[in-house]
Simulated assay, not measured.
Amino acid sequence: MDPLIAITQPAADEAGIVSRIVQRSIRDGCALDHRNDASLVEAWTRHKGCDQVARWLLDEALCLRLAWLQGKPVGAGMALATGEVCLCYVQPESFRRGAGRALMAALEHFLGTAGHSHAMLYSTRTAAGFYARMGYRPMGRPVSFTGLVLTPMRKPLAVSAGAWHER
């Protein structure tokens, strides 16, 4: 991992940071998926506000992480103890700098140490190439959710001790 990237568990007072990263990434980085349709953007971001993120931080069945690049928060990711990665968002100006890859490594580590042999997720069209480069492969037919087309993807996990360290 790039020494300029740090992955942390957000503190309670960072819920607003996580919410802003996720909502802005959706609005500005996922136009291919929402096609600048305000009702689609609203439906996608509706349950990602500060209050919801604060609840996620209290839920022990979730792994929520914050990515920092050169000391600035640039990404957020979350996995469920059931084996699903359900969030991985990076600010558009920080795309292709390693923050998304570092977030996914942290989430996959969580899932592997929780006993999962595979990680699964539902990818948007915007993120499909990123996930494919991370080793995820489509499994099954795309599904529609709140106006978005999502492709189920899966990746085998190989957790080795010391493969990833949180700062």
Rank of each mutant, 00 (worst) to 15 (best):
Q91C: 13
V22D: 02
G129E: 06
M153V: 08
T146V: 14
V159M: 09
A76Y: 01
G135S: 09
G115A: 09
A161H: 13
A114P: 05
R167L: 13
W164I: 06
A43E: 11
W56V: 00
A79D: 04
A61W: 00
L64A: 13
A106F: 08
R65F: 05
V159R: 11
G75T: 08
S117A: 15
L107T: 00
G129I: 01
A76H: 02
D33S: 06
P138I: 05
P73G: 06
T124G: 03
D51A: 15
R24D: 14
L66D: 01
C88F: 01
R27P: 00
V85S: 00
M139S: 12
E84Q: 15
I21N: 00
Q52F: 08
L87M: 15
A106Y: 05
V74H: 02
S39Y: 01
I5V: 04
L150T: 07
C63L: 08
M1N: 12
D59Y: 00
Q70E: 14
M153G: 04
H47G: 15
R167E: 13
V149G: 08
P3N: 10
V74L: 08
D13W: 08
D59F: 06
R141E: 15
M153F: 03
V18W: 03
M78C: 15
G129V: 04
L121W: 03
A31F: 05
V90P: 01
W164Y: 15
Q52V: 15
W68K: 12
R65M: 04
Y122G: 13
P10C: 03
T82G: 14
R24Y: 09
F145V: 12
L148A: 14
W44H: 10
T8D: 04
L103R: 05
D2Y: 06
P152K: 13
T151I: 11
G16D: 08
D13Q: 14
P73K: 05
R141H: 12
L64K: 03
H34D: 01
G129H: 07
M78I: 09
G75R: 00
S144K: 13
R27K: 11
Y136V: 00
F130P: 03
M153K: 01
G77K: 02
N36Y: 13
H116F: 07
R154A: 09
A79F: 01
T151A: 11
A161L: 13
P156F: 07
A76D: 02
W164D: 12
A31D: 06
V159S: 10
I7R: 02
L150V: 06
M134S: 11
S39V: 10
A11N: 12
E42P: 00
H118K: 13
I7Q: 01
F110K: 09
T113S: 12
L148C: 08
H165Y: 04
S144W: 10
A81E: 11
Y131I: 10
Y136H: 05
A161C: 08
F95K: 01
Q91W: 09
G77Y: 00
A119P: 07
L62Y: 14
A38M: 07
E108I: 00
R101A: 09
T45D: 11
F130Q: 01
Q52G: 04
I5L: 04
S39D: 15
T146C: 11
S144D: 14
Q9V: 15
D37W: 02
P92R: 00
R101F: 05
A106H: 08
W68N: 14
A119F: 04
Q70A: 15
I7H: 02
A54W: 02
S144M: 14
S25T: 10
A12L: 10
G16I: 01
T113R: 14
P156I: 05
I17E: 05
